[in-house]
Design a protein around this nucleic acid. Sequence first.
RNA 1: GCCCCCGUAGCUCAGUAGGAUAGAGCAUCGGUUUCCUAAACCGCAGGUCGCAGGUUCGACUCCUGCCGGGGGUACCA
Length: 605
Amino acid sequence: MEKDKFKEQFSGSLSFAFQKVYPEKYAELGRQQVFSADFIYENLEKPRDPAHGRFAFPVFRYGKLLGDKPTDVALKVAREAAAHARSSGPHPDVLTDCIAAGGFINARTNFEMEAGETLDAVLTGRSTYGSSQEGKGRTVLVEYSSPNIAKPFGVGHLRTTILGNSLRRIFRKLGYESVGINYLGDWGTQFGKMIVAWQKWGRGKSGAGETVSDLVELYVKYHQEAEEDPSLDERARQAFKGLEDADPEITDLWETFRDISLAEFKRVYDFMGVEFDWITGEAFLNDKMEAVIERLEKAGLTSLSEGALIVDLKDPQLPPCLLRKADGATLYATRDITGLLYRWDRYHFHEALYVVASAQSDHFKQVFKVVQLLEESEQVPAEERVAERARHIDFGWVKFGEKTMSTRRGNVVLLDDVINQAVELARDKIREKNPDLKSIDETARIIGVGAVLFSQLSVRRQKDVNFVWDEVLNFEGETGPYLQYTHARLCSLLRNYPEKVTPKVEVSKLDREEERRVIELLADFPEAVRDGARNYEPNHIATHLLRLAGAFNKVYQRKDEQGRIDKIISQDGALSAARMALVRSVQIVIGEGLDLLGLKAPQEM
RNA sequence: GCCCCCGUAGCUCAGUAGGAUAGAGCAUCGGUUUCCUAAACCGCAGGUCGCAGGUUCGACUCCUGCCGGGGGUACCA
């Protein structure tokens, strides 16, 4: 990572000042690097309140060390640092201020320089602004969505789908090879039930024209009937056995279910703009588990308990991990262990992320622990260990009023319905606000989907969210459509501006509170992207975009003393050029940011 | 019982590798359109950051205990 020249200069000057003001202490502590430029660089902060400047270095903790009151340390050091910053260091012209404020030393950057460089970086970088090379040569796997075959795609799947889709994009932006994996729930005893239901009440054997809702209907009917007639469950067990034994007729049915579901999932993903690099499923691992079980046995990790094959995790917090039920059938942990090892062989990934609800956190702890024990036992070299590269990216529930959603009872909120409603509402709004818009259908889709996606991204992963129609369908305030609207308005300005936008503008024209704030937020965008990746939390980017959009809208609607709008495009050519460089930059960053979240940015709406 | 997550304004949430007077949106009330898209902007109001201790120069943030909500706790996924 290239050093920020403003921070570099500030930390260099501070280091120099500490040495000058406290020569003995500096010499004494120098060995521990406490006041080295590098140390200070790493410990600089950004004041939350922009009025305090761009960077800050708190000195409280050094008062005791230096035998001086923190406020005095700040005063003395700031004075020397200011003098040094003006005349020496690698970039003697980048700081304008170096002031003590209580126990902080605050630095203000040379605005014109920072503004000029930021605009230049955005305008020349465009879609690459905020990207980096940190992930070069590394692969990150992101497993997300992972719906169950033959079940409806409900809002319960919203978060994993949207979070994972965004994380895949964020890692890609940072130079990683990122592989989106859709690990379908295409195996398990519920297929026995489906098969029985299909054979008993299904319409035809071809599957032509059948939809997922037909399958769900059968599934619901099965559960109703099974209450009366317990023998159905036995037949279902038999049917699943047939599937496991690769009975051709039953396998054929299973493939039919899979095809029906996949076609429908694909339609939803395409509509939402969700992408995958590898669509796989549990069944894919069927023939791979045996070897893994043998490997675990060979490593001496397995034992029999109550007829089941288990791995004792030697951890009082975790129950043993079941590999095989007493009847010999494998379990999902077996499949996940196998899948993780398989993915390592195939990708040699830097990290493997599992975007799965927090209810499964014990499950992933178990899976990762088994792999860790295996690797320890086999003395796998540290750089080839998989366990520590695997991460469960957990998230809270999507709750729906008082009701818990249950496929069996058939009461789920379908993602389809949510999106359709959102798109319809968007269409109504367009007709009301911009009836002349040419691409109403496409724009309504972008906005409706945007509202739904953003509703999941504007909240921290781990919090439970309530699914409230009014909130998901809200297009005002901190929402996706708000960002999209701001983007559209920026595009409108660009259309209305006859000149070419270039970074070579008089940045001093942007030296007002509101513009400065916009520029700082533009400059901080790359950091927001990195934060998002580091915490596996797209929400950081969403929040940053809301701030940026808000800051820009303030500029856009600012009024002068007479109450007249201070227009972006005016008679003053130089001023307009400078403002339009800002406009174009904000448009690029909001557009890029929305792309990282998986939202489209409309030109008009 | 044990383990994990959450608890911030009336509501929904930011702020979490400790840092300066705790920020938004929604809702309420008031204002802004002869002016680049009012899906916007401005203003008023709204707080014992669940409670109690502890660590620290400094705690919404870290530690401990408690309260409240959610989840998990071997043959479902």
